[in-house]
Design a binder for these strands. Sequence first.
DNA 1: ATTACTAATTCACGAGTAA
DNA 2: TTTACTCGTGAATTAGTAA
Lengths: 220, 220
Amino acid sequence: MFFMRKSFFILLAIARHGGLSRSVSFSTVELAAELGVSQQSASRLLRDCERQEYVSKSSGPAGTKVQLTEKGAGVLKAVYRELALSLFPSQKKRSLGGVVVSGFGEGKYYMSQEGYRKQLLDKFGFEAFKGTLNVNADSAELESFLAGLPEETLSGFETQERSFGHARCYRVSVRNQPCVLVLPSRGKRPDGVVELVASFSFRKKLGFVDNGKITIEATG
Amino acid sequence: MFFMRKSFFILLAIARHGGLSRSVSFSTVELAAELGVSQQSASRLLRDCERQEYVSKSSGPAGTKVQLTEKGAGVLKAVYRELALSLFPSQKKRSLGGVVVSGFGEGKYYMSQEGYRKQLLDKFGFEAFKGTLNVNADSAELESFLAGLPEETLSGFETQERSFGHARCYRVSVRNQPCVLVLPSRGKRPDGVVELVASFSFRKKLGFVDNGKITIEATG
DNA sequence: ATTACTAATTCACGAGTAA
DNA sequence: TTTACTCGTGAATTAGTAA
């Protein structure tokens, strides 16, 4: 957890300047002043962050442009989660309400890929049912629900036909059945729609139907 | 802001173990393992935190007991705030609803103390009206409202008669009138009750009465 | 202006160990 | 077992510059 200690405050400084969502101009002199180190150290520390893939940057005599990577943003989120749990232990959001929506079969397609099935088995210990349950939730509620959960990542991979992106996963449960909430990074989906993966079919085993209400619970 | 860089992760580790609200046993060996440093470094770093008054601790051959001070907790809250603003810029809570309650005149007593008046003038630039408006808010809402605001502190002081504790302050506004939300640390008050201080009387100038609704807005 | 190299320096770290 | 000291080493930092 604390291996990213040395990079954290640089990432935070970049995020403060908006580097989470876009590339920002950020000279090493400014960065140095904010952190209270020399320009030389700022330059070196930034390069260390790039080596660890926390940021992507381009720099030259015209200045530096920098943006946090997913991995870098993950560092900030992980610390945010720890802080939130420590500072406001009472306020952890333990459940998330949503509505079942139709997924047009992509869930089945993705869950048939060995690249994902293998990782789900390794990380979560079950053979995934070849299909997902798509759930629509309020995106702000989803955000704060997920902020309180430990995050795991399914890596992207390539097949002969195409390449598959990585996905963020969270252990949750529905009606006391453990399952995994998956947020694919690829394929811009509507805000607030997530996929649930389990060893079984939510529709067959638990009787969920389109437009039905569902409650997702945090586990652990 | 980043002067506490070196201590932050130690404070976070202590908070994870519950050291925010109570004294926790925490051997330097454990701490070292969590941070990925040697026992010797953990011991030294902990001592640095004590010197900076981020923690209070007692240690000896039987082990170490440690608890975060207000100042130490303030470090974690400040970082939490920065993270929250960067990660979820949309979600900042900008206003807080509450109900005016009767304060039995202690507000007038405190606001008559030169020790507080001087600090309010220095920090906020106004002569405080000798009285406060007590407001009752939902304590969870209050917590998340304040988490998004920069915090300032009025120091405690001594008079011939008694000693006065320190207080946490936040710049806010009510009906577009800038004022200061004060949370005294002393004198256990009911959860969710705060005091508003301004250059004027809320009751006379704005017509607030007991049990009336009030909305406090974040400024800046 | 910048960034970022190399060299000098410092100060943080951990080994050894006392209490 | 603890905690925490001293001290040698080297990684991290800054100064001085080049580009």
